[in-house]
């Protein structure tokens, strides 16, 4: 049954989608250029940014862009990423999750604990990368810092980058693994079935809104008043973006 024939609901507004893919591009470029300096076997990756010197020049600037985009998304999504009771139960059943036995999982909200861990790992690592990255940044900033601090920053930057890249590998795989997820970030919408199956509490919450219940893109535009009902802070429906 194709998506067109299932009821769908909005998961990410156009602003959030643009933000996400901006970050995705920035992150890939950062990982490629960063890994080139990280380990000799990866040095060839620096060619993807136009050669090793360009990679060195561009990496920190792209990092700043990534950081700014991340702040926006983090502020908008953090309340959906607070741990709740069922999350612990869900984590205990991680074996079922990995084996695709979803039926007995406790109901969870907009994000599952795995997604929340990705979120918090990035909330920690990206600001750390910015701070340490600025300390290492030549020729602009490194000169203002004592060399022992630059050494420490370099070590921490490498560790934080490792954490961030490992996290993003998991994140990308999860999107491939859980069918129906990628469309949430490309087209903005998921099927009602997907939402109820993977994020039941979020689904119930959204079903309070007529335009989400209507299940079709564009339905909400019939009623401009609906926009007002969607103004809860951090909401990432049509208003976010």
């Amino acid at each position: 049954m194709s998506i067109r024939k299932q009821k769908t609901m909005q998961r990410y507004g156009p602003g959030t989608r643009a933000n996400h893919w901006g970050m995705a591009i920035a992150f890939i470029l950062l990982a490629l250029s960063g890994l080139a300096f990280f380990q000799p076997q990866f040095f060839f990756l620096s060619n993807t940014l136009g050669g090793p010197v360009w990679a060195r020049v561009l990496h920190p600037f792209i990092g700043v862009v990534l950081f700014m985009l991340f702040v926006i998304i983090a502020v908008r999504q953090y309340r959906h990423n607070l741990l709740m009771e069922n999350d612990v139960k869900w984590m205990k059943q991680i074996g079922d999750v990995l084996n695709n036995r979803d039926d007995n999982l406790p109901p969870i909200g907009k994000y599952n604990p795995g997604q929340k861990m990705v979120f918090w790992a990035l909330v920690v690592s990206i600001p750390v990368l910015l701070l340490t990255g600025v300390i290492m940044w030549r020729p602009w900033f490194a000169g203002f810092f004592p060399i022992p601090l630059i050494r420490f920053a370099s070590l921490v930057h490498a560790l934080a980058a490792f954490v961030a890249i490992a996290t993003i590998i998991v994140h990308i795989y999860a999107a491939i693994w859980v069918k129906g997820s990628i469309r949430a970030m490309t087209r903005g919408r998921v099927t009602h079935a997907w939402a109820k199956h993977h994020h039941p509490l979020w689904y119930e919450e959204e079903m309070e809104k007529p335009e989400q219940r209507a299940g079709e893109e564009g339905k909400e535009q019939h009623d401009s008043q609906l926009n007002r009902s969607m103004e809860s802070p951090g909401h990432d429906g049509r208003t976010s973006g």
Binding site: Q6, N100, I176, K179
Partner: peptide, 23 residues
Amino acid sequence: TAFAGFFHFITKGPKEEPTDEEV
């Protein structure tokens, strides 16, 4: 990590998109 993902997909397969009937 990357290979673990790959082999997980190969052995366990994806979480297929649920149909309306199922849900």
